[in-house]
Each structure stands twice: as C-alpha cells, then as structure tokens.
C-alpha cells in the first residue's frame, strides 16, 4: 500500500465542513417542516370526497414513494428547467426532499389518525364538544404521540438525503463542501471519512434530542 493518509489537511478543513453541516441541517429541517405541513394536507385530501383532489394526493404519495430520491432531484432540477422554471441547486434539493418527505409522511399521518380509537371522539362529542374542537383537543395530541417516532426517522432520512445535492451542483452542504475539497486535493478518503463521522454525529444528535423531547412531551 503506497498511500499515505494525510489527516492533517482534512482536520484543517473541519471548520468549512462544519459550516456545511449547518447548511445540511438547515435544508433537512426546512424540508421536514414544509413536508409535514404538506403531508397533513395530503393525508386529509386522500380521504376526501372530491375525486380530483383525492387522485392528486394519491398520485403524489405513490410517485414520491416508488421513485428514487435522486430521480426526484433530477426531475426538479433538469425537468423543470426544460419548462422554463430554473431553480438553483439549493432550492431544487429542498423542493425534491420536501416532495419526498411529504409523500412518506402522508402515509405516516394516515396511520396515525387510524391509531386513535374512534371511541375517543365519541367520548369527547358526548361531553358536548364540537367536531373540530374534539379533533383538536383529543385526537390530535394522541396522534402526535403515535407519529413522533416515524417523524424522527424521516428527519434522519432527510439529513442523509441532502447529500444528493452534490449531484446537481450544490456546494455548500456537507457533502458539497467535502466534494469541493476532494476535487481540489484528491484526498478523497480522508475528507469523506471525516464527513461520514460528522453525518453520524448529526443523526445521533437528532435521535437524542427527539428522545429528550418525547420524554418531556409524552409523560403519560
């Protein structure tokens, strides 16, 4: 083996990589917030009586779940580009991951809704609560507890998915920064190894904080 590992260069680049990690977290978080909002709409739409809306919602969900994330990013970046809608790499990545998240989370929310027994709604209504009131005060909080673990998982997925930004030229998330450094120095292994460690730590951070949140929120 005539390759000498040169870790010092990699460690010197750590601050840049950590800034990249911050961008990664930013994209992941944004895509989760937007994705959750859209997912709730999709979950409601897929059960509503208006056929066109229901078809749209189901198509979105099935498309998001049965095609690769990388394909979705290409579609948003190149495909929309041919229609005249030019998104930069950051927005394209964000849009694609949000699209993906919304699709997966819609299923999660539908399952979560089913998990709350109908008898809870019945008990709330028999106390005189209106339908929306009962939903907000009784069903929603219980549903939140059920969907919390899948939401956490999806957040981890989102963080890992942001690495695909590099295929459409994103240079300021963690993978983009790492690739940039790689191209300039050809120390592929060292740089990407450190990036891997940073990703690992990020996912552990997310899971840890989620567990803490769950402990505080769901004391019952």
């Amino acid at each position: 083996m005539d390759y000498t590992f040169q870790w010092r260069a990699a460690f010197r680049a750590l601050p840049d990589m950590l800034w990249g990690a911050l961008v990664t977290l930013e994209v992941a978080l944004l895509s989760m917030v937007l994705g959750t909002f859209l997912a709730i709409l999709l979950a409601v739409a897929s059960g509503c009586r208006f056929r066109a809306l229901r078809a749209l919602a189901i198509s979105w969900v099935e498309l998001a779940r049965n095609t690769p994330a990388m394909f979705q990013i290409y579609m948003v970046y190149f495909g929309l580009g041919s229609l005249g809608i030019f998104l930069d790499s950051f927005l394209a990545l964000l849009a694609a991951i949000t699209f993906n998240n919304a699709g997966y989370l819609a299923e999660t929310f539908r399952g979560g809704l089913r998990a709350v027994p109908g008898t809870q709604m019945r008990a709330a209504r028999s106390l005189g609560m209106g339908q929306l009131q009962a939903f907000r005060l009784i069903v929603l909080p219980q549903m939140f507890r059920v969907v919390f673990p899948p939401l956490t998982n999806q957040m981890v997925w989102a963080i890992l998915m942001t690495s695909l930004g590099v295929v459409v030229g994103l240079t300021n998330d963690l993978t983009g920064v790492t690739q940039d450094l790689n191209v300039r120095s050809f120390r592929t292994f060292e740089f990407f190894a450190i990036a891997a460690v940073i990703y690992y730590l990020m996912t552990k951070l997310v899971i840890g904080s989620a567990r803490l949140m769950a402990w505080r929120l769901f004391r019952y």
């Binding site: 027994p117 008898t119 809870q120 019945r122 008990a123 709330a124 209504r125 028999s126 106390l127 005189g128 609560m129 209106g130 009784i138 909080p141 219980q142 507890r145 769901f218 019952y220």
Partner: peptide, 20 residues
C-alpha cells in the same frame, strides 16, 4: 346536539379516558 349533550351525561363500558 352539542348543546343538548350538556344535559345528558353518558358513561361507556370502556370508560374512554383521555390518556394524554
């Protein structure tokens, strides 16, 4: 109905406590 139900209390077999 919401108003009427304030006058009628009902207790079910499975109590249906609000767990949260």
């Amino acid at each position: 109905l919401n108003k009427l139900r304030r006058k009628i209390g009902i207790v079910f077999q499975q109590w249906n406590a609000f767990p949260h």
